[in-house]
Amino acid sequence: MSPSAPTASLRDAYGTTLVELGERDPHLVVFDADLSGSTRTQLFGQKFPDRFFNVGVMEPTMMSMAAGVSLGGRTVFASTFAVFAAGQAYNFVRQSICYNRANVKIVATHGGLLVGGDGGTHQMLEDIGLMRGLPGMTVIVPADAPTARAATLAIAERDGPAYVRLTRESLPSVTDGSFRIGRAAELRAGSDLTVVAVGALVARALDLAEDLAQVGISVRVLDAASVKPFDEAAVLKAARETGAILVLEEHSVLTGVGSLVASVTSESCPVPVRRIGVPDLFGESGDPWALLDRYGMSARRIRDEAWDLLRLRGKVE
């Protein structure tokens, strides 16, 4: 983990922001499926019990009910773990929410390997791919608590379905919370190589940039929190200006942001793209941060891939 910035809980940021939204909008409704303590929707539920529905372990139907409530004109938030929101409930998100153009905001916590001890069943590594494939769905993967807060506010303002993926672990606050839907944030300027990262790995991207700066290599870091709509312009600009892109995500490389970056660049500005993430595997139990290392996202591996790309582009010997 990046020692450079203080850490904060993305889930806490979501929960407290949701209470603010509830104060602002008396019609806003929140659903949860028996995980309200973990997702922090409990904070909303304590403040607005009449507008909070904890429906128990029925994630698919939670999505249908949320859609039904929203069709009357309300903004509705629905939370559970990512594996249940995007996995268990997939076709309900697809038809009840997206096909109905329902104004439902799914904020899923416990995305990715950082779930740790619960193991592979609960470590959702395919949700970004599943959710960004749905027509009309906005998909956001915040890197820290300030972006989790900004994303919660942003999706509430935007009409239509949204999926936000939060991490269980607290993360270093690496952004200033100026997140905007559709925009990638350039967290660090650079000209030799670009790292596009989402979620927990944005901090590792910044660590890499700092590390390589020591030896005179200039690395651009883009926080691609807005996975959909995706800031293609920023990625193509980076491809043109730096000539190579390394993508970091705590998600399957088969369907995640890495494959998205590769698609975007190959159509308009083909440059070498390396995808760092989870290979074609399920996770397992373990210390959250040790799991990142074990599954191919160690600082060392990231550095090796970066050097490889730099060599490929003739920027180092």
């Binding site: 019609h27 009910m65 039904g68 069709l71 009357g72 309300r74 038809q95």
Partner: peptide
């Protein structure tokens, strides 16, 4: 049409949501 349906087991959930919305309102 009040709710798009087709895949089974979903319309009933949306109807429950609509009844909750009505009660809240």
């Amino acid at each position: 049409v009040e709710a798009s349906t087709g895949c089974l087991g979903q319309g009933i959930g949306m109807a429950v949501g609509m009844a909750l919305d009505a009660r809240l309102a």
